[in-house]
Design a protein around this nucleic acid. Structure first.
Length: 262
DNA sequence: ATGTCGTGCTGCGCACGA
């Protein structure tokens, strides 16, 4: 059996509904982690997606942020709060246990803060959020189960993951402290799926709407699947579905899809 | 730097976030 797990920042699920439905019909992913749904739970196009055979869990917010998990398999536990800050109102995390054929698989949909401008309070929030994610992931890894933390990490891990490092050097997505926090997360024992099976430079998951970035090839790789050892051992393929970026009314992000023997 | 996009109110143009 294989389980495909995708991550896609859709930049408004309501504005993107035709694109999302087309892609679900074509790619038929088993599990999808969505980010930036930009709607409250009641506004999520639940029925349209359920009609394609998905169970749906959302953690929405008005206007900004918002995450969701779609699954062709039953969703067991589901929580939508990253521990560590009771004051945090931003909907950036949802975690669920998927009842896959071979057993439970824990999946989280992550929308890590952008952090610009840096330095500043937004960057402080980003780094604090990454520290909270680190602490939470540490606990999850102790469960020793297949775990996939999928999402828009707003982190460019390497210079070769962007089209021109000179442009991004001072950006919150590439600053040394951002990379260090991302590295620290991986050092817990999480494997980045793309790095494990591919690792080439310049394989982007985001192209800005501005300045004809898509046409010029000016992209960055910021959407990642981080895998526990039990998930990493089962990883068979990783694909970036570039075709979606060329469609009318495309999201600025591209889905990344992992295939697991789970 | 910018030939951008989506949301929602200050509302039919603008501010904000990305």
């Amino acid at each position: 059996m294989t389980l495909t797990v995708a991550s896609w920042n859709v930049n408004s699920v309501k504005a993107r509904l035709p694109n999302v439905l087309d892609w679900l019909r074509e790619a038929k992913p088993d599990v999808v982690c969505l980010q930036e749904i930009k709607t409250v739970d009641e506004g999520f196009p639940r029925m349209e997606i359920e009609d394609l055979g998905y169970n749906v869990e959302t953690h929405g917010q008005k206007s900004y942020n918002g995450v969701a998990i779609l699954s062709r398999y039953p969703i067991e536990e589901c929580t939508s709060r990253l521990p560590g800050d009771d004051e945090d109102e931003q909907a950036r995390y949802i975690e669920a246990v998927i009842a896959a054929e071979t057993g439970p698989v824990r999946v989280a949909s992550i929308y890590l803060p952008n952090g610009n401008p840096a330095p500043g309070p937004k960057y402080d929030y980003k780094l604090a959020w990454m520290e909270r994610l680190y602490s939470h992931a540490k606990g999850l890894l102790e469960l020793e189960e297949p775990l996939i933390l999928a999402g828009d990490y707003n982190c460019i891990p390497r210079d070769s993951d962007c089209w021109d490092m000179a442009v991004w050097a001072d950006d919150a997505l590439a600053l040394p402290a951002t990379r260090a926090a991302f590295k620290k997360l991986r050092w817990l024992g999480l494997t980045e799926a793309f790095e494990q099976l591919d690792g080439r430079g310049h394989q982007y998951t985001f192209y800005d709407y501005q300045g004809g970035a898509w046409q010029k090839g000016y992209g960055i790789r910021i959407d990642h699947l981080l895998c526990s050892p039990q998930a990493s051992d089962a990883l068979e393929a990783i694909d970036i579905h570039r075709k979606t970026r060329g469609e009318p009314k495309a999201s600025d992000h591209i889905p990344i899809v992992g295939t697991f023997a789970l």
